[in-house]
Design a protein around this nucleic acid. Sequence first.
DNA 1: ACCTGAACACCGTTCAAGT
DNA 2: ACCTGAACACCGTTCAAGT
Lengths: 231, 231
Amino acid sequence: MGLSRERIVGAAIELLDTDGERGLTFRALAARLKTGAGAIYWHVTNKDELLIAATEAILTGAARPRAGTPEDTLRAIALGVFDAVDEHPWVGTQLTRMQAQPALLRLSESIGRQVQLLGVPSAAGFDAATALLNYVLGVAGQNAALAGSIEPGTIRGEVLGTMAAEWEALDPEEFPYLRSVAPQLRDHDDRDQFLAGVDLVLAGMATLRGVPADPPRRARPDVPSGHGPSQ
Amino acid sequence: MGLSRERIVGAAIELLDTDGERGLTFRALAARLKTGAGAIYWHVTNKDELLIAATEAILTGAARPRAGTPEDTLRAIALGVFDAVDEHPWVGTQLTRMQAQPALLRLSESIGRQVQLLGVPSAAGFDAATALLNYVLGVAGQNAALAGSIEPGTIRGEVLGTMAAEWEALDPEEFPYLRSVAPQLRDHDDRDQFLAGVDLVLAGMATLRGVPADPPRRARPDVPSGHGPSQ
DNA sequence: ACCTGAACACCGTTCAAGT
DNA sequence: ACCTGAACACCGTTCAAGT
């Protein structure tokens, strides 16, 4: 069984997951695949292409629309990205750094289409869809950065705890707000907060249709809570 | 006039602006400063610290609250970041990649405080402030990525034109939405769209107070249109 | 057609040696 | 105290040589 594009991409994903973004080098990849570094170039053009393929492997189907109201579909799409980045933080980096990422196109398409279904007038619709996309990408980028700043494989809650401790140690004169909110940071649920943000944007969109929005809830039992669509 | 931290940071900013993020190397920096590469390490710990200092130099004061309603202040803060990233795309990368970036703390503080003033209840307030921050960071990251994908110094409109052409060339079966919206992408104003997104989030926040939001406008003559607060 | 591994052109960073 | 520049330990990528 020789090399193949799939084996290479698979090994790259493993390396990225276990050793972080800096762990993926052609030498490490070659060692894991028991070949020379140059062999990989026979199947893959360069590192960028490899990263795109790896992201593609994780994100296939993540932006696929499901049945339900446009709002619920938008929540599901957004959650799909969130969970994928949660499991594979380097996906967040790819999504926010690479313009040539096909997954980003599919995500834009899915979001845009659902916003259209929402009934937002077309001029404002493009702006609204772009806003939601950018919010999702912002969270993805932050989560990737947060994961990149620590040892790969650290427990989730731990990261927020450390960050909360830093906020509590800030100068009270300059950072009263962050200090006051540090306890909330410590024991909040990322995923919940992400959804609250999605709901906030959706509530904003509702005002664009002239329909009074019901205030976004924080608890949402209607959304599946398991980590879904990533590989 | 020997070396100094300020001269080093200044030269780094010039290099980043003219040659892009990949243009900043210790060797190029040393050449520009007419020293050896190692000399820089006497004044600066490492490259990360240098990038943080450079971002800091650009973003000082960008998040400082001005007089006005909380909404207007939030718009001004967001615009400050947008314009800074517009002039110095690498700032967008820093903001979204580095957790230890002081400018990010100040930005979080400023946004959070204004959202408090907005009267959003404190539990939802933290979520709302985080949502706005993530939106701003998402746009910053995308603009940085977009700028990074092209030759430094390309004309702004040109980038969007190229991207619009790509969207028009997409498969009509798979990407009907992006194709339909390509013309809007071509001749829209980034900055306008960014503001529309901020207004969307603000409209969402308004629903959290139970106050009916007036629908966000697209034209906004009340906001200064010049590129302001960066260096 | 596919693989090997040395070699090339870079990086960031260190450090003995200078002034 | 500050600077110099060679050296070290890496990178991504290429390419002659093998099978």
